[in-house]
Simulated scan of single mutants.
Amino acid sequence: MPRIAIIGAAHPHVDYVLDELARADRGGFELVGVQDSDRAVAEKHAGRFGVPAYDRAEDLLAEGIDIAVIAGVYGTRGADVIAALRAGAHVLADKPLCTSLVELAQIEAEAASSGRTVNLLLEKRGYPETLAALAVVEAGELGDIVGITTSGPHKLNRAQRPDWFFDRAQYGGILSDLAVHDLDAALLFAPADEGVIRGAVSAPLDGAAGFACYGAATLTTPTTVISAEVSWLTPQASDVHGDYRLRLVGTRGTAEVFWARGRVEVTTQDRPVRLLDLPAGQRPAEEALDAFAAGRAPAVSTAVSLAATRLALLAQESADQGGAVLTWTRSADDVVPTVPTP
């Protein structure tokens, strides 16, 4: 039975995994413990499952962990991922995976040398709307995808955010935090191995130097122009946390994906606008834990996780450099993993 541990639990997305482990139909794992530098946070989650709380990641990793779930303060995640890989654990991480390109290079090297996987929780891949739109694209109804635009606004809920969230050294930046989902989703619809990316940010938050409330990234690949905007500016009175959207422009049609509204509209040269029937989706950590329980690698592979992270970090670096155009290349080789035996 794979032994799983929580290394860092500062972000609520840790519940993606913990809620999955708590499901009555979810077996096959032993939760060994929960670690966080904030003892109260660790004890809160550990108490839910009756497992020990740990102050230090190295102490929990020393217990012989097969899968380390990384969901702590953003600025500590890179070091935690590297420590987990060195301890022989696979990594299942909330985004961002890390906050610097230097850390990402170290993670890539450790994954390759250890033969362990690094899997990012890119939950938009499993949304019903994404799956419905992808089926249309793969069937060729839209022709070649030449343009993709996405919008990812969020409510800030400032009073509920911890202090580290507004510390640039710990947060990492709006593009590295939020744009990773939409850039990855765009590559799902229009795969590419290379391109150039430019980022920009604006609207700093009063009283939080270096914290941008709005950002945009443009990725140009050999076939497609991709534009992703993200923000912390969803009005507080909105009925949704963020009205997330994606628009696909193809040579034979268009598709509008309204993630927050549960709707996908498709219009083609041959058919007027229609609403797609939505398939069953996947919970954020469902497929990855199914894969580990079955002894196989998750569908969101190490290569996919690293490529999406690299894109978001390059976009953030571009913004920090005043909009410099930077080259992006997907990692050519995926790690061949040794997955835990169920």
Rank of each mutant, 00 (worst) to 15 (best):
R3I: 04
I6P: 01
H13V: 04
R23E: 12
R26F: 00
F29N: 01
V32M: 12
Q35F: 03
R39A: 14
A42R: 05
K44C: 00
Y54M: 04
R56E: 15
E58S: 14
L60M: 10
I65V: 15
V69F: 07
G72C: 06
D80Q: 14
A84H: 04
A87D: 04
A87N: 08
G88H: 06
A89Y: 09
L97C: 01
E108H: 10
S114F: 09
S114L: 07
L121T: 10
G126C: 02
Y127F: 12
L134Y: 10
A135W: 11
E138Y: 06
A139Q: 14
E141W: 06
L142T: 01
G147C: 07
I148G: 08
T150K: 05
P153N: 03
A159T: 11
Q160P: 00
R168G: 00
S176Y: 02
D184G: 03
A190V: 00
A190C: 02
A192Y: 06
A192S: 13
V196S: 08
V201M: 07
P204F: 03
P204A: 02
D206W: 08
G215S: 06
L219C: 02
L219H: 06
P235I: 07
A237N: 12
A237P: 01
A237D: 15
V240F: 11
D243H: 12
V249L: 13
T254F: 09
W259Q: 08
D270A: 14
P279L: 03
P279G: 00
G281S: 03
Q282I: 00
P284E: 06
A308T: 02
R310T: 00
E317I: 00
V325G: 02
T329D: 15
R330G: 14
S331P: 08
T341E: 15
